[in-house]
Design a protein around this nucleic acid. Structure first.
Lengths: 260, 260
DNA sequence: CGGCAAGTTGAGCCAGGTCAACTCCGGTGG
DNA sequence: CCACCGGAGTTGACCTGGCTCAACTTGCCG
């Protein structure tokens, strides 16, 4: 960016380049040119998966648009969406054991930029800003996954759905965002698989939330939050009493300070 | 290690130092001395939590022994163990949003080494091996969390338990490990919270697996695997038919190659 | 306008949550 | 040494949230 004229043609049309919070925006002109020369961008259509052979050749890639999912398939056909990745996520699939994790399947049409392993590593080595950003992104992925685990573990169907609405809201691109409108970027059935429930149950939960005047489902992909505090309470698992209950009802642990 | 004599006293008794797969083993003598001088090791007893103030001061630490958990508490008192960390894990809790994630609570007596943020960053910047290792560790944490999510999402109680046994087996320190003996480092109730089920259900599942001659529970913390293939099948969700069913029973997706 | 995939609604059922009683253990104090 | 206690784990009986299966509606695309 110190040399805007040198910006590769491809990158000039890529949203990753213009969003300051993304990897490409942190690169110097030279780095961008090098990375771009050795990388390739492409489009994956909804339902397509990234084959292992492709991953072998291009284990690192950035999502430019759309949603891609990491799916597990159980032997008897049950399917789970274990995580999904959106614009700005950089996915590093080196390390064979990780690749056994599941299949990368696009949940919508997805724009990806496959990065050259060699150049990527070189940039990570040399460019502190870029390294920090990648590191933060990976840590975000970690904590997001951990968060999701805890949603799945103990929450009821409605609570999971409420959490999911907030997750969508937080992860949506910052631009043109309205507080009360949330975009659901994936289909109901995928949503169900992500939350570990049945499409029927998802449908029923949306209905209940609408009946309780907490949300309004405008069209299938956009919901409007009518009562944010209520939705937040549900997401946080406040079961019946809206307020008044002690926040930390001593669940058996003797919580003491850890000696420093 | 180029200068073994310079090895700090503390480190000479620390298991992290001797295990080649751990961070400290990758450091040069000088780095180890510097890091050690600015760090402090300590012990956290079971049930104690790491307070936010301590985390503020020491956001990065390595686990030397024991098991520490990241717990969420729902408003109505339900509790979840979202993840747990064991020997060799390096936890980086910088970035405020992550800290809202939950509480770090020891599930057993835990030895930690709190690392100086400054020196840690310096080493990461300078030492390629160390950086790679930390990066891999973080990526492991990510994929482990994702894996765990998918366990929670679609698996039945027994299947989750089977998966958990394998998780314990994989994560156990490499040394003195026998193929068929698995150490369960946490209590039943914590296990239940990790797997999103009730202690009663955990107990019942262990019983069923014993009755089916798949495992043997020697004492509460050690189980012996009697029929590994069967256990693996259960963990992978092969519902009834042990074999013969098609592995990928086309569940609706048109799976096509992604254009490279 | 037909055809197909996605989503919704309804009815019935069961895995696992819930509650209560009981056992087993290690620590403590008389 | 034994009686007592409290916390962890187990067992049993019951009940319910959400899964299942099937029929229906809606929306999209050629």
């Amino acid at each position: 960016m110190q040399m805007p004229d040198a910006t590769p043609e491809k990158c000039r049309h890529c949203s990753l380049f213009y969003d300051q919070a993304n990897f490409c925006a942190k690169l110097t002109g030279r780095e961008l040119v090098d990375l771009n020369a050795a990388s390739q961008s492409g489009m994956i259509r909804r339902g397509e998966m990234i084959w292992d052979e492709v991953l072998e050749r291009w284990p690192i890639f950035a999502i430019e648009s759309g949603v891609i999912s990491l799916q597990h398939l159980l032997k008897d056909g049950r399917k789970t969406i274990a995580a999904f990745f959106m614009r700005g996520d950089v996915i590093d699939m080196r390390n064979t054991s990780n690749r056994k994790l599941g299949h990368l399947i696009a949940l919508s049409d997805v724009g990806v930029c496959r990065l050259s392993e060699r150049i990527f590593d070189r940039i990570i080595d040399e460019n502190l800003d870029a390294r920090r950003l990648i590191w933060d992104n990976l840590r975000d992925q970690t904590f997001r996954a951990i968060d999701h685990s805890s949603d799945l573990a103990k929450k009821k169907a409605q609570e999971k759905l409420a959490s999911f609405i907030f997750e969508c809201s937080h992860r949506a691109p910052q631009a043109h965002k309205r507080e009360d409108l949330v975009d659901i970027p994936i289909r109901r059935r995928d949503l169900a698989e992500y939350l570990g429930m049945q499409p029927e149950t998802v449908s029923r939960c949306f209905k209940t939330l609408e009946e309780r005047r907490i949300i309004k489902v405008t069209d299938l992909s956009i919901i409007k939050i009518l009562d944010l505090p209520a939705l937040r309470r549900i997401a946080n698992g406040a079961r019946s009493e809206p307020g008044g209950v002690a926040l930390c009802p001593q669940t058996g642990y003797t919580i003491a300070t850890s000696r420093p």
